[in-house]
Amino acid sequence: MTNNRYEGVIKVNVFNTSQYILEVALNRDKVESFNEYPFSIPAIVKLNEIELHPHVTFFVGENGSGKSTLIEAIAVAFGLNPEGGSKHFTFSTENSHSELHRYLVLRKGIKRPRDSYFLRAESFYNVATNIEELGIGYVYSDKSLHHQSHGESFMSLFLHRFLGKGLYILDEPEAALSPMRQLSLISRIHELASNNSQFIIATHSPMLLSYPNSYIYNIDNNGINRIKYEDTDHFTITKNFFNHYKMMLNELMKLDE
């Protein structure tokens, strides 16, 4: 890849009027060493550029593959709080995010989102606490987020805080959601995508991945590669389990004997 077209922080594509982020690229010339974290992650070692879908882009991969590191870096490079929230959230409970965002280049369309939000499932409690401290809980619900179940507070966020015409970056949003609530989230994603919103989502959920108007990128030691829904491990393993769950359980329990 030639990097000269990525000089500077942001390049604007004047030919696309409906997409907020068209592409994410790694400024490889700026990286001093690919032997140090996070650049030593196999998928990052091979990263050049990733084309994003105008509406929904999914990142999937095993634990430790780097998908959360990547999606966090995209959020921070866009100006969002590393622990979650909108650009107006500045709190920090622990400075644990990587330096990857400093080496990413976001190539944007000419439109700017009216709304933006970064959800990290693991730190949403901290976000909810900051919301209480700022006295803006009414934006999310008429009931304190801390007085709702984890899943209810997530749905309050999706239903009431996500306003449309926005960029929404979600890291494992299914973590607190029942299967029924995951279906509700698919419906909400579609509603917001139809209202000029763009989603970038890291997920393990085969249900969320079924959303058809999307790109799916698999992250593993071979890099970051676009695949079909039916070719994801999430789909094939889940399908095989439900079709042959008795046989698979017998085999799994034999391994423990």
Rank of each mutant, 00 (worst) to 15 (best):
E132S: 14
E133D: 12
S205M: 07
T129V: 14
Y217L: 09
N221Y: 15
R161E: 09
E132I: 05
S178M: 05
S149E: 10
V139K: 13
R120W: 01
S141N: 03
G137A: 02
N218W: 14
R120V: 07
I219Q: 13
A175R: 03
S197M: 12
S141L: 01
N225W: 13
Y138R: 05
H190L: 14
S184P: 03
H150T: 13
I200R: 12
A202I: 10
E152C: 04
P212T: 06
I227Q: 03
S141P: 07
G164A: 02
G223I: 13
F158K: 08
E133C: 02
Y215K: 15
G164S: 04
M155P: 02
Y140E: 02
L145F: 02
E122S: 14
Y138N: 08
N213Q: 14
I186K: 05
N218G: 15
S210Y: 09
S178F: 06
S178E: 08
K228D: 15
G164K: 01
L134M: 12
N213V: 12
D171P: 00
P212K: 11
P212D: 02
N130K: 00
M207N: 08
L170N: 02
S205T: 08
F162Y: 03
E122Q: 08
M207F: 12
T203L: 05
Y140P: 06
Y229K: 01
F199I: 11
H204F: 08
S153H: 06
D171V: 07
R161S: 10
E172D: 04
A175G: 08
L208D: 03
F154P: 00
I131C: 02
G137T: 05
V139I: 09
Y217T: 11
S194H: 14
N195E: 15
K165A: 03
L208T: 01
P173G: 00
R226C: 07
S156I: 07
M155F: 01
K228S: 14
H150M: 09
H190G: 13
D142C: 06
L145T: 03
Y211P: 01
T203G: 08
R181K: 12
M207V: 11
Y215I: 05
S187Y: 00
P179V: 04
L208E: 00
P173Y: 05
A121S: 14
Q198I: 14
Y138A: 10
I219D: 10
G151Q: 04
H204I: 11
Y229S: 08
A176D: 11
A121W: 04
Q148F: 03
G164L: 11
A176P: 07
E122L: 11
P212C: 10
M155R: 03
S123G: 03
Y138P: 04
Y140D: 02
S194G: 15
N225F: 13
A202T: 11
S141Q: 05
